[in-house]
Nucleic acid binder design. Structure first.
Lengths: 143, 143
DNA sequence: GTTCCCCTACTCGGATACACTTTGTCCGAGTATGATCGG
DNA sequence: CCGATCATACTCGGACAAAGTGTATCCGAGTAGGGGAAC
């Protein structure tokens, strides 16, 4: 299970927007500073998230991004698939003899099942889980 | 769940050796022909499998490779991890503020769980499962 | 005070360049078998 | 007939080149709000 860097940034960006929804919008620059990445990179991530309706974008001079959904409704699967595309099984095409078709089918079934388990796991975790962990972090060992 | 091309080749190579164990060794060239790949590529795969003791190699003029284990004992996980390395969770290192540590931990837990499920799935399937599917395909009742 | 226009700050979206991983290829070296040759 | 020598066919293992994929950066364009000038 390899989480792409961009997906990880996207998840943290959504969590950041969700934790900072004071009604106002947040600019890409602020998100970039929070994640310690370039503004352009954050911009691209936020654009894709907005295209998939996971966050709202506002154009113009006082524009920015905003998280308007309920944290319970947005899952990690939605975020990851918005960035990296569908989490599907991939068995490479192999140009081999016909009697290998059955064995390749077995591999496909195994990978399909594994991919489904990944999807299930990513769907069980929502943005609110991230927000909650944040509270635990702040309230726990500091003092 | 993305199965690398080399891993797929390795699985099919082991299945080929397992289905052809007449007592004699099989040369890398034969495996390459069976998989429709270059001899060098097959050679490299077989070498790695032999290093991990999944198959036996025999040096010298009448050398080659042989599958001596029981098909029930060798799992797909062993083959895939021999080729691609450990199937572990990977959450990219992110240089962000400290208050993001908790959220990153959540991501790590999720990915760890997903990776464990992948391992479980790959471990449940053995070489004998591939051989059985082959019989179903070719209708060759020999076991 | 109202209207019009321009300037500014932001998002949008494609294009491009870069880095990393995977994949494919090559070559020298080691090893065991069989054939050959000399005693 | 027997043993030493050589040729052959294979594996071994590292190194390298090519391809593919993910990542970072750049640039022009569009959009909305604010400020200033003219009336």
């Amino acid at each position: 299970m390899k989480l792409s860097k961009t997906s990880a940034h996207a998840v943290l960006a959504v969590a950041y927007l969700a934790s900072s929804k004071d009604g106002g919008v947040i600019q890409a620059r602020q998100v970039a500073d929070h994640l310690n990445i370039q503004t352009d990179s954050a911009l691209k991530i936020l654009q894709v998230l907005a295209q998939h309706k996971l966050i709202d974008s506002r154009l113009g001079r006082s524009g920015g991004y905003r998280f308007t959904k309920s944290p319970d409704e947005v899952t990690l699967l939605q975020i990851v698939e918005a960035i990296d595309g569908p989490v599907a099984s991939e068995v490479p095409a192999i140009n081999a003899a016909d009697n290998l078709a059955g064995r390749l089918d077995v591999l496909r079934v195994v990978c399909d099942h594994a991919a489904q388990q990944i999807r299930d796991r990513l769907q069980k975790t929502t943005v609110s889980d991230l927000l909650f962990s944040d509270q635990m972090q702040v309230l726990n060992p500091s003092r």
